[in-house]
Structures are given as C-alpha cells and as structure tokens.
Amino acid sequence: MDSSMVNDLQTDSLIKPYRENLEKEMNEVLVIAAEEFPIEKGKAQTKLGNLVADLSLEIANQLYQPVDNDSIDFCLLNFGGLRTSLPKGEITKGKIFELMPFENELVVVTISKEAFNSLVNYLFQVGGQPISKGLTLVEYLEQHSDVLDMYFLIKENKYRINSEFKILTSDYLANGGDNMSFFSKPIKIEPLNIKLRDAIIKYCESENRKGNKLTSVLDDRIILDKLRLK
C-alpha cells in the first residue's frame, strides 16, 4: 500500500471522539419491529415498501398545507431506493440510515390525468413499486379473453371528476429517477422540506412513543396477474 495513504494521526484523533459519539447515537433504538421487513425482489408489493410508502404519506399529511385544500392522493416511491431489509426486533437509527442513505426529500407532485395514466402503465410494466394505501391496482386476464387488461381504482369518483392527481414522492423520483418520466411535466411540485429518512425516523419514534411496534400489511393496493396468482 502506498505509504501516503495511511491515516493522518492528528486528523484521525480529531475525528475519534465525534465518531464514537456518533456511533452511540446510531446505535440508539428507535422502535421495535414486530416482524422482519425483507427486501423482496420481483414482488409487486412488499411489507417494507408498504411500510415506507404508508408512513411517508402519514408524515406528509401532518406537514402538507395545500393552498387548494386538496389532499395527497397517494405516495409512490421506488424499491431501488430502499437499500436494506429491516430485521425483527430493535431498529436502530443507524439501520434507518442504511435503509435510506440518500438525502432525498419528500415532495408533492401534481400531475395531469394523462400523466397519471402513464404512471399506472409504468407500474404494470415494471411490476410494481412501493405505493401507499389509497390506490388499488389490479391486473387480470378477462375470463373469456386473451387480452390482458389493467384495472385500477383510485377514489373512483375522483378519477372521473378530476383532471389532476397529487402524488407524494421523493425529489429524486420527481426529477425522473427510475424512469418515472410521467413526472417530467408536472403541473406543480411542492417541497415538504423533510428528508425521506427523517420521515422514517420521525414515524418510528412516534410509534415507539405510542407503545406500538413496527408493522405493515400486504393488501390489495397492487395486485398483478391476479388470475395466475389464484
């Protein structure tokens, strides 16, 4: 090894107490997970994805003050952004930094009905991404047809009436990350000035204060290829 690349001792000793203190904080237990939340590749929805999408929406709703009094329809994130599984038991702050090492912030993006249709198509094409409760996507084959049909329900009446949809996501995705090109011409982007990671930490702390353990469910929010599943 190149001798110039060893740690400078003076610098290292300056860092040391900060490092030790930080490690102490990162070892702080935020909440207890009632179950494991694994990264599961190839699934349309996962407990981990549902947990993070739902808690993001919950935290965002506490912060979001819409000028038009129109609330957020749902949250859309990406599996690629969730970087580690959460174990059953103690969840440390460091673990949340591992789960979400990026500095992405939550934003509310208002998109047109056309863009929303592209979003639905995208979700079927990529086989799902973490979404919150509030949107139900079901893909199935018509019994007497070979044509693959896609159905979705979103506060049904609203879909008929409204021409705009409000989606909670990260600034990274709003900028077209993970091929989310339907965000490319937004009607409006409203920053919530909170990092996704901080939202997760906030939620964990608040659940812990309430005496709750971390849980989430799989439900009908996104079901792909329903007939084949039967």
């Binding site: 740690n7 400078d8 610098t11 860092i15 490092r19």
Partner: peptide
Amino acid sequence: HIEPFPTKDPKYPGLGGAARRATLINK
C-alpha cells in the same frame, strides 16, 4: 464524507476519507 466509503460501496469502495486526504495534503 469524513470517513471513507465502505469497502462494499458499489461505486467508490474504500475511497476518500478526511484522515487520508490530510496525509496526501501533508505530503
């Protein structure tokens, strides 16, 4: 980025870090 990237980092494994930058600068 006070510490180097973790050795398992997909992009910059083990790179960077203030204490080694200091060594380089001192040199």
